[in-house]
Design a protein around this nucleic acid. Sequence first.
DNA 1: CTGAAAGCGCTTACAG
DNA 2: CTGAAAGCGCTTACAG
Lengths: 377, 377
Amino acid sequence: MRIDRDARHDDVPRKPGVVAVARAVGVSPSTVSNAFNRPERLSPALRERVLRTAAELGYGGPDPVARSLRSGRAGAIGVVFRRRLADAFDEPATVELLRGLSDITDLRQLALVLVPGLQQEHPSIGPAVRNAAVDGLIVYSMSADDPLFEAACQRRLPTVIVDSPTIADLAAVGGGPAGSGPDFVGIDDRAAAETAVRHLLGLGHRSLAILSFGLTAHSRPGAAPVRQQAQAIASVPKARLEGSARAVAAAGLDWSSVPVELVPITSAEGCLAGARALLDRASGITALFAFSDPLAQAARLVARERGLSVPGDLSIIGFDDTAPASEGLTSIHQPLRDKGRIAAERLLRALGQDPPPAGGELLPTRLVVRDSTAPPG
Amino acid sequence: MRIDRDARHDDVPRKPGVVAVARAVGVSPSTVSNAFNRPERLSPALRERVLRTAAELGYGGPDPVARSLRSGRAGAIGVVFRRRLADAFDEPATVELLRGLSDITDLRQLALVLVPGLQQEHPSIGPAVRNAAVDGLIVYSMSADDPLFEAACQRRLPTVIVDSPTIADLAAVGGGPAGSGPDFVGIDDRAAAETAVRHLLGLGHRSLAILSFGLTAHSRPGAAPVRQQAQAIASVPKARLEGSARAVAAAGLDWSSVPVELVPITSAEGCLAGARALLDRASGITALFAFSDPLAQAARLVARERGLSVPGDLSIIGFDDTAPASEGLTSIHQPLRDKGRIAAERLLRALGQDPPPAGGELLPTRLVVRDSTAPPG
DNA sequence: CTGAAAGCGCTTACAG
DNA sequence: CTGAAAGCGCTTACAG
C-alpha cells in the first residue's frame, strides 16, 4: 500500500507536498499554501524563496484533488454521454453542442469533463459518471430508463438535461433526482416532426416511412409497429413519432401503415443497415423522414445503390441540419450551438446565486427546404 | 465558511456523507464504504440495508474527489489545449485526434478532461491545467515558449506531447519536466513539407508562397522574412518551413524570395484575412502551400474572390487531409485518429507498469494528389 | 463479517 | 506577516 510505503521510508518521499516544501524553506505549510494561492499575503522575498525551493524540490504545485476536497469546488463541469465518447465525436450534432458548451465554459476557464457511457463489453466497471470530479452535470440525450441516467441523477449534482428525458417524461416514469430536480434545454420535437411530415404530405406524398432512433435504452434495431411505439420511453423519438402520427392523421391517412424502422445510431454501418432494411420492406414509399441528417445521408446512399433518384423517386428529409448545405438535404434545423450555450449558462447559474427560472427552455426549430424533397415523380 | 456552518448546525447537515449513512444504519463508515466498493465483503442483507438507507438519506455515493485523494487515482486523463476549447472543436484535425484518444479511453471507461488554454481576456485566472484532477496529460501542439506548456510540465504528471514541442526542440529551449521527461507522438513535419513543396516544384512551379501558423506562442500575424523564421520556436511551423526551404534550395531557387505569411488559426476570419494578405503582396505566385486544410480552403475561397482559377491560375496544397475528399484538395495526409490512439495508449502504459520505449513515435504521412494542384497554366 | 484508526494533501479562520 | 489546528470525505490494512 502506497501510503504505508511512504510513511516507512520517510527519507525517500515519493512526491513532495506542501509540508515538504515548508520544512525545506523553514516555514509553515500555511505559508507555502499562501505563496501559491494568496501571493499578496507574503513579502515578495519570502514568496520568491518558497517558489524557488518548491521548484528545486520538484513540487508540482498544490494538488488539485486535495484542494478540491477542501474547497468543495472542482472547477469543471461534466458532460455525460449515453455511449462511448468516440461515438459522440462521430456525430456532428454532438460536436456542435460541445462547441456551444465550451463557448461558455471558456469564459471562466472551466474544464469540460467528458464522461463516457457504459460499454456493452465491460458493464462491470460501473458508470464513469460516479467517478467524475465535477461541480455540475450536463446530461446529453438519454432515455429515462437508462441505468446511466439513474447513476447521473444519483450524484445529486446541479444538472441540466439536454434533449432527453424531458421533464414531463421524467415525471411519468417517476425517476429523476430528488430536491429541485434537473433543469432542461431542448426543442419541441413533436412540433418539429409534425412540420417535417406536413412538408412531405404537402408535396403530395401519400406513402412514407420513418427512420427512427431506438425507443428505449435497450431498444433492438428493426421494425417498430404501432404497439411497440406505444412503449416508447426515450423522449426524442417518442415525441417525433407522435408528431409524425399527428400530421399523418390530420391528412386522413392511416398511421399504422407507415413503416417505422429503428436504427442503432452508433455507427455509419448501423445507419446504412437500417436504411437498407427499411427500403427492403417498404419499397413502395415515395418519401422518407429520417430522425437525423446522418441517417438521411445514409438513406440517400442506399437509395442511389438501388437506382432510386432523390428526390425523383424518393424524397428524403433529415433532422438537425448538420449536413453541409452543399449536399442539398432538406432538414429540420435546430440551434445546436445555442443549445450548448444555454445549457452551460443555466448550469453555471444553478451553481451560483442566480438559478434560472424553473421549467427549462425550448429552442426554436425551422424547416429548411433544399433539393432532397419534391413532389412524387 | 461552509465547514464551520456545517459543524455548528449538526442537526441540519448539508449533504449526507459516509458517516451519516453509517450512523443511520448503525454500522461503521468502513462498512458503508464496503457496501459501495466491495459488495462481496458484506452479507447481502446488510448491503441491501446500507444501500436503501443511503438512498433514503439522499446520499449520492462516495464522493469522487475524496476517493481520489485517498486512492491517488483520478480515473481521468487530461487533454491540454493551447487556446479555447471552442476553437479546438472548430478544427477538424483536433476533433479527429479526440476521436482517436477516446477510442482508447473508452475501453477503460476513463473520462477525458478537456482543459482550455489561456484567454487573452482573462490572463489573471491562471492556467486551468493547474486545477485538472487527472492521472496524466496529453499536451496538444504547443509552442515550447508557451506559459501554458510550462504550467503543464509543472504538474509532473505522466505526459504525452502530441506534435509540439518535439523532444529535440524541448532540449534546445532547455524547458520541459524534470525526471524521465514527456513522451512524444507526432509526424516528421520537415519531411512532409519537403514532399509537399517538391510536388509543387515537380509540376513546374517556380514562384510559390506559404501560409503558415505562428512561429512562437505570441506570434503576430503578417509576413515572416527569413530572419524572423530563424527565430521560430513552435516545432510544427519551424520544421515545415525548414522542409520547404530544403526543397526550394534543392531546386536551385532562392528561399528568401518565397513569401511566408503567418496566420492566427483561431478563426475562419483569420484564415481568410491571412490568405488575402498573402495574395495581395505575392500576386505573381502560381502555387501556394498552406499548413492546414482549413487554411488551404480559405486560400481557395480568396483566389476565387479574385477571379483566379484553381488550379489553372493557382495551385494549392493543404495539410492534414481533413477537407472532404469531394472538395478535391491536394493535401498531405496524416493519420490523426491513429495519432490520438497511440498517444492515449502510450499515456496509459506510462500510468501502468509497462512504459513505452523512450524517444516517442513518428507516424507516417503521405501526399494525396487531387484536383487543386496542376502544372502552371 | 465488522470496526477503530490513520492518513490522502490541502486550505482557512483564527490567534499571535 | 506567519503558524497551529481542524477538517474536507473517503479507503484500507489491520485487529477482532
